[in-house]
Design a protein around this nucleic acid. Structure first.
Length: 578
DNA sequence: GCCGTTTTCGGCCCGACTGTTTTCAGTCG
């Protein structure tokens, strides 16, 4: 069966329908059903084709009869009358208005239906002409906030990468946690869940004098504007454009608030539903019995235990599988930051890196690694000064010399070999088989069809000399979408051929995405966490790769480079024929 | 529109803050 629309497009349309239903003022639970179905599709490992063929689509929780039919129609015909009709009611530019803070579907609908406002520009003009304040439900302040919001959307619409948020958050956290009025403090939200991109920095503190903390927070030198300030909560925008919220609670409420503000929203919803099955009520202050009796919890762990759940680490709280795992006492034991014994896929000055072999090795040694795999670019990557056969041989001599002298780490010989358009590799098979490992990567010709790209990657991973694919989907977070590829099929081919999957730790990449890693784990594939480092500092990026692994629910045993040198080399050999 | 350890109908997580109200709707997380 051939599908006209791929899964990603179907998901997008479902999400769009949810927004359109909100705009139309439909039952909010109906809208939620569409969002929910989109999320379910996004997180299931199965391809849409497989779900349809096996008849599992309608069996999936969150997809009932109506949605099954609509998804099927969309996938097979590429269109859906229900969607088209809904879409016809509103101009597509209304979606831009929804990005303005404090403007939701109701207000946008009012702006559109009373004044015909469709775009940011039109809204800006209407605000400047002081027309907005006359609308019922709007006022002078709303008008002003909309103008500020438009400015903000234009300037800082984007999310930021995890490391950027982390470095902005650290001084805020230190200021709050060291304040004399603070009893306990924590970073929360997506930062604590270690998401790959962050929208704002959430902070929580407990105190007997919340007002003092709020004052101190809004007065911090990093704060550019205060967008909201109450007695227990403040919202600000920092000088660097990132938004930040501080919430202050009483100390006995802290564990509940910590759990609540860590989220995700989906996880919270599931936790509250779980509480209800015991007749409890859970909010950010307490866990309460029906009779009003409060169940005391000293820390977050106690909340999970009170709901007869295993403790769930923050990274797993995405509303996917974690509650089910926790109910069955099956929360995986996650890899820890110190668990890596070495790493592969690093560059040197020989291609486009900034450091020498020795410098990279010394830096790896300083991280406590036992081995470092050098994988410089191959000759097709001419823009990166890729190595040809001769220069590769010279590098090997250099590596042999280094290893004979016995530095802090054993250097492994490798190559990041370009995958050419047809799936063939930039080096001959016998050369790759002489390497200790080889990373196959796509660096050009991104604009293939999904079928062609999938075939290209499968062809590469079937090559005997290849150990794993480098940054499998080619995405650059906040910059470039992944190239079209059927990841499930590539993972299948990887499993079939006994190869590994790279978790590329570069914060721009974090590729393979954690959402897809779980599926690979269930197929028994081993992972390798690599920094793709182009300088010595880049080696430390592996902590972000570990975040990905943790979010995927991977334990130490699933990651090849948690093994000691000898065991690791044995595993490497198993990726080769014979 | 989905779903079932109070249920096949009537729920669907819950509270802070804001602005525009004169008791509350909208938005956000």
């Amino acid at each position: 069966m051939d599908l006209i629309l791929e899964k990603k497009s179907v998901i997008q349309i479902l999400e769009e329908i949810a927004v359109l239903l909100d705009l139309a003022g439909e039952n909010p639970f109906k809208s939620r059903a569409y969002s929910n179905a989109a999320r379910v599709l996004e997180t299931t490992g199965e391809s849409l084709e497989e779900l349809i063929r096996s008849g599992q689509l309608g069996e999936t929780k969150g997809i009932g009869k109506a949605l099954e039919e609509k998804i099927l129609t969309l996938a097979v015909t590429g269109t859906l009358e229900y969607y088209e009709k809904l879409r016809g009611q509103f101009p597509p530019t209304l979606f831009d208005l929804l990005k303005i803070p404090n403007l939701g579907p109701k207000k946008v609908k009012t702006l559109y239906s009373t004044l015909g406002i469709q775009s940011l520009d039109e809204l800006e003009k209407a605000c400047q002409a002081r027309i907005i304040r006359a609308l019922s439900g709007f006022g002078e302040k709303t008008e002003q906030r909309i103008l500020e919001g438009i400015e903000r959307v234009r300037t800082y619409a984007a999310r930021v990468l995890l490391p950027a948020a982390e470095s902005a958050a650290q001084p805020l956290f230190e200021s709050v946690s060291s304040h004399p009025a603070t009893l306990r403090a924590s970073l929360c939200g997506s930062l604590r869940r270690r998401r790959e991109t962050i929208k704002d920095i959430d902070l929580l503190a407990s105190s007997r004098e919340p007002g003092e903390l709020i004052e101190a927070f809004t007065g911090l030198p990093q704060v550019k504007t205060i967008t909201g300030q109450g007695s227990t909560k403040a919202s600000v925008v920092l000088e660097n454009g990132i938004a930040s919220d501080l919430r202050v609670v009483a100390d006995d409420e802290f564990p509940f608030a910590l759990n609540y503000f860590t989220g995700s929203k989906e996880h919270n919803t599931l936790m509250r539903s779980r509480a209800r099955t015991f007749g409890y009520r859970l909010n950010e202050y307490a866990l309460t019995r029906e009779n009003g009796e409060i169940l005391s919890c000293q820390n977050e762990e106690a909340i999970y235990w009170a709901l007869e759940l295993d403790y769930i680490p923050p990274e797993l709280r995405e509303g996917l599988h974690e509650i089910g795992w926790a109910m069955n006492r099956a929360v995986p034991s996650l890899i820890e930051y110190g668990d890596l014994k070495g790493t592969l896929h690093c560059h040197t000055r020989a291609s486009d890196g900034e450091a020498s072999l020795e410098e990279m090795a010394a830096a790896a040694g300083a991280l406590g690694y036992q081995y470092l795999g050098i994988g410089d670019h191959s000759k097709a990557a001419f823009y990166a000064n890729g190595l040809d056969e001769k220069r590769l041989a010279q590098q090997w001599e250099e590596i042999d010399r280094y290893n004979r002298q016995g530095g802090p780490v054993k250097i492994l010989k490798g190559s990041e070999v370009d995958i050419l358009r047809d799936g063939e590799l930039d080096f001959a098979e016998e050369i790759l088989l002489e390497c200790d490992f080889a990373v196959g990567s796509v660096h050009s010709q991104f604009a293939l069809s999904e079928a062609e790209m999938t075939q290209r990657l499968i062809c590469a991973i079937e090559s005997p000399g290849i150990t794993f694919l480098g940054h499998m989907t080619g995405r650059l977070l906040l910059q470039r979408e992944p190239y079209p590829v059927d990841v499930a099929k590539v993972i299948d081919a990887t499993a079939r051929n006994g190869k590994w999957i790279e978790i590329n730790s570069n914060p721009w990449r974090l590729d393979l995405d954690w959402r897809a890693c779980l599926e690979a784990r269930d197929k028994g594939v081993l992972f390798c966490i690599n920094p793709d480092a182009h300088n010595t500092a880049g080696l430390a990026d592996n902590r972000y790769g570990i975040d990905v692994a943790r979010k995927a629910g991977l334990g130490r045993e699933a990651i090849a480079n948690t093994r000691e040198l000898n065991d690791f080399c044995q595993l490497l050999k198993k990726t080769r024929p014979g």
